[in-house]
């Protein structure tokens, strides 16, 4: 379920590191809890974010959740497709539903995050 090469946060974001850039999204657990996603507020390209700072918000019909950045860095790309088809997050949270790409400022921050198996254990406790 949860890709082995991703890192995970307690706020249910994931990050996949590719070179000096990380692809960020929310986990399957997060999307299934929120229900049908109807809107996402994407960050602007060029925004500098810090670890655990708000990157954007994600909305279902009756709930709003903040997306926190798993690392510090600069937003270099956002998934524009989500503006019109936010349901991609429901359909493919770890793939086509990615939210933003961040140029990682300090990769030592990745040590704060969980591995797939740690995250699976973590959400087991949340159910």
């Amino acid at each position: 379920m949860y890709p082995k090469d991703f890192y995970y946060t307690k706020d249910h974001e994931w990050i996949q590191v590719k070179g000096d850039t990380g692809v960020v999204g929310v986990t399957d657990f997060a999307q299934s809890h929120l229900g049908d996603i109807v809107y996402i507020e994407l960050p602007k390209i060029g925004t500098k974010v810090k670890y655990r700072q708000i990157l954007g918000t994600i909305e279902s019909v009756k709930a709003v959740a903040d997306i926190y950045s798993p690392v510090s860095g600069e937003v270099v790309e956002v998934n524009e497709e989500l503006s019109n088809t936010p349901e991609l997050i429901n359909q493919d949270p770890h793939g086509k539903g990615w939210i933003a790409k961040i140029k990682i400022a300090d990769d030592s921050e990745l040590q704060n995050l969980m591995t797939a198996s740690e995250y699976e254990k973590f959400i087991e406790g949340q159910k």
Partner: peptide
């Protein structure tokens, strides 16, 4: 668009 409103946000 209820997520704008006080009962949710």
């Amino acid at each position: 668009l209820s997520t704008r409103e006080q009962h949710i946000r």
